[in-house]
């Protein structure tokens, strides 16, 4: 019991710190790729603290509710992950957050929010099946959906699930709001339809969304790390390389439209996943 409480507390403290830090590193890396110096590494924390202390304004009280609900769902998902719970359940919980974010944006009458919300739904539609299939792949390999069992698995999963990992990379690009998939909203000074989904979130509520996003990032990177759970070096290396690739992708591609995204994610992602799953079946 005490162990559980400790894990929960540690996760709730460490995840946003780590998430913010990763976001800061991301911004520096992006700036360097654009021959700029970039902000200090703690910049995301400055942003969030500032937002938390701004005047709370909202266009609609439901939006306040949805911001809180999004943050709670993202936190619960990461905590469940830390506790080694069921992977599918974690993914569903994470999806709850995404849905509340969308509902909050839809509750505004601004067309910008509306378009952003619908694009976010399409993004969810694009990546959700792939995430489920990744979980299924892990199950077929390790015989369990429980994250604790996956962690304890003896060999790196990446060797058996390379294509599923590629599909997960696709998901990551969408979830991190990176080009070419940053349709619903964008990050770090990019603008897309006046920030799309986030148009009418403001002040502390925007900060909640940002913190929730950090939790989501941590969740996905943690999921990536499961693919080399046998050694710390392998885990860190894998995640670092993956993230670096994401940053490069972000900077060398242009934003595309949702049709392309949906087609690409489903055609490419589902093919990769299915091929990998067939391997696992045949074996």
């Amino acid at each position: 019991m005490i162990d559980t409480i400790l894990v929960v507390a540690a996760t709730l403290v460490a995840a946003p710190l780590l998430g913010g830090l990763i976001s800061g590193l991301d911004r520096i890396a992006t700036a360097r790729l654009q021959s700029r110096v970039g902000p200090p590494v703690v910049q995301p924390f400055h942003d969030v603290i500032k937002l938390l202390n701004k005047e709370p304004v909202a266009v609609n009280v439901w939006q306040v509710f949805c911001a809180y609900a999004y943050l709670s769902a993202s936190m619960i998902a990461v905590v469940l992950f830390a506790l080694g719970s069921d992977l599918l359940l974690v993914l569903f919980t994470q999806a709850v957050g995404a849905v509340f974010l969308v509902v909050g944006a839809l509750s505004s009458t601004s067309p910008y929010s509306l378009v952003g919300a619908h694009r976010e739904l399409l993004q969810t539609l694009s990546y959700e099946p792939l995430l489920v299939l990744v979980a299924v792949g892990i199950y077929l390999q390790t015989g369990s959906f429980k994250i604790a069992d996956t962690r304890a698995w003896g060999a790196p999963l990446l060797l058996k699930l390379p294509f599923l990992y590629a599909a997960l990379g696709l998901v990551l690009t969408i979830k991190l709001r990176k080009s070419p998939f940053d349709l619903s909203t964008s990050h770090h000074g990019h603008q897309e339809i006046v920030k799309g989904l986030l148009t009418d979130y403001s002040g502390p509520f925007l900060a909640f969304v940002e913190i929730g996003h950090w939790f989501d990032v941590i969740l996905l990177l943690w999921l990536c790390s499961l693919f080399w759970a046998t050694s710390w070096t392998g885990m860190i290396l894998l995640v670092a390389v993956t993230y670096a690739l994401e940053v490069v992708t972000d900077n060398v591609t242009a934003r595309m439209n949702w049709r392309w995204m949906l087609g690409y994610a489903w055609a490419m992602g589902l093919t990769l996943s299915v091929v990998n799953l067939i391997w696992l079946h045949v074996r």
Binding site: V59, N60, V61, W62, A95, V99, V102, V103, G104, A105, L106, S107, S108, T109, L114, A117, H118, L121, L122, T124, L125, E128, P129, V132, L133, V136, W266, L270, S273, V274, L277, I278, H281
Partner: peptide, 30 residues
């Protein structure tokens, strides 16, 4: 395999039409 791929895709689609509806009901300055 065939079943799980279809179920995964279908459940993502399910989220789309429900979330859209819930959001629409809530969309009003209140």
């Amino acid at each position: 395999l065939a079943v799980v791929v279809m179920v995964a895709a279908g459940s993502a689609l399910t989220v789309v039409y429900w979330a859209r509806w819930a959001g629409t009901l809530m969309s009003e300055p209140f």
